[in-house]
Amino acid sequence: MPIQYYIALAVTLFSIGVVGVLIRRNAIIVFMCIELMLNAANLLLVAFSKTHPATATAPLAGIDGQLFVFFVMVVAAAEVSVGLAIIVMLYRNTHSVDVDFLNRLKN
């Protein structure tokens, strides 16, 4: 598959995530759209890691890209646990997960 198909798919997924962050008010769905954007980047990293044909001198060319995807997943898991804890705390204090109420954190 030519790489530009994968790039087009990944940027479309990323744009869908951006639109979701902009138009939804539910904090959990905004969070899920961030996950969608992370996955678009992951897909692009994996696709680019496969553009290096293996040679005799470098049989593992491109493996760094796939390891980066692994680390992105690790960081995403940590981020989700803290983020959901923040959302639960927000819900406990305001009884709402509407992001427009987030300005109450000011005082």
Binding site: P2, I3, K50, P53, A54, L60, I63, Q66
Partner: peptide, 22 residues
């Protein structure tokens, strides 16, 4: 000269190679 992402081939995604580098 289109850049091709190789499908259904290659061994860099296998757990043995990834684990060794990791």
């Amino acid at each position: 000269h289109p850049v091709i992402a190789a499908t259904n081939t290659g061994s860099i995604g296998l757990i043995k190679n990834l684990g060794q580098v990791l």
